[in-house]
Amino acid sequence: MKISIASGKGGTGKTTLATNLAYLLSQKSPVILADLDVEEPNSGFFIKGKEIHEKKVFRMIPEWDKEKCVLCGNCQRVCKFNAVIKLWEEVLVFNQLCHSCYACSELCPQNALPMKTYEVGKITEFEQNNLHFIEGKLNVGEEQAVPLIKETIDFTNHNYSSDILRIFDAPPGTSCPVIEATKSADYIILITEPTPFGLHDLKLAVEVMRELKKDFGVIINRYGIGNDDVVQYCEDERIPLLGKIPNMKKAAEAYSKGELLSEAIPEIRSAILDIIKNLQDREVLL
């Protein structure tokens, strides 16, 4: 089972939910937690595991071979991303724009654009008893998150049995990084806050999940602030409300220090346990 936790709006509690769910569930059986918010991964502040493995992640990028090139300009013509430009007597490759499609390289009549590795980030694997935590982290300056998200998911597929429960901490938003972090999941939890911003972005996230034909439910974090419009919306749209996590300044303080809220605050622990029970009743969790 793969569960992806997404949100639309940033800062609504994706990481809080992902880490606490993974931690509590791992007390009974093995769990893999993968932080796919590779631009700004934060799960690692709350899961204190032992680092067991780190690997660099590379992408393939063409590199111009001046000696072989006859300046025919075919590379520039086939590149849809303006990543390869022929300028006078030179061919320039813009790494950030390249999508690693290989077209310029493989269609070059002179083999003058061989593909070379280019580092985009790293994947680190931690272990805390039954909890296997995998973090993808994008190098600063690298613009494309999708290849690293894909690599991080592949890493969990190659290294762990598919029987083990996977929890994905997805990035915010509704565009390509979110699609990559949710499209392979069996169930999506959308976490939001009961405010106009939270509701607006929840509606966008719901549209994405419907487009992807995903089974999903909603959790309201910081319940007690704002208003009841999110609850009403879920009722109207017949979206299951999986739980509510109460709003407490204490929780913000504990979060700020990197404390796991289910350990630090009994009310939050019981809210997360209710969510687990709810997921079990729905047969999302065994």
Binding site: T15, E40, N42, F45, Y255
Partner: peptide
């Protein structure tokens, strides 16, 4: 930013950019 470990960490990364 906000004074949380994630907030500070993310701010440092975006400042590098």
């Amino acid at each position: 930013t906000e004074p949380t470990l994630p907030g500070f960490h993310d701010m440092k990364r975006v400042y590098e950019l």
